[in-house]
Amino acid sequence: MTFEKLKVSVGVSLVLFIFIVANVFAFGFAQKKYEDSLREQQKILDELNAAIIDTEKTGTPRNATENITKNITITPSNISHNTSEKDSSNTKKDNTTKSSVSKKNESSTNKTIIAKPVPKQKTRTIHITRRRRTHAS
């Protein structure tokens, strides 16, 4: 192997190394951002769930944004109870809404509210409408 060939081999390996490491960091950073956004969304939903339960119990509006940056106020009139995951898709949607709150196995004594995160939240406005139960599971 001549000196020139050695130089080329080392150069190519170095470029390949830098390319792979840069890509790992770029994709790793993108994944971290994505996971952070999911976590933030989950936090919002947890807050909303807590606010919903609180509002249902007390009947008074509550600010659901104590720990998050969104400005959302929960009132009894904007709580929607869905009975199945499928029903949650009936929640009013528009381009600005990517979150929904569904409620599984609803019974009068045991209400379990499940917050379901949706991957991408593009806006900070959440519209939650009250709907009648269509069927019970």
Binding site: L14, F17, F25, K32
Partner: peptide, 22 residues
Amino acid sequence: ILFHPILLVLKFIPENFKQAAI
């Protein structure tokens, strides 16, 4: 030696790029 870390992080890819970067 350059390929040592590269080959070691490949086990995280493509599922977990964040772990690979860390």
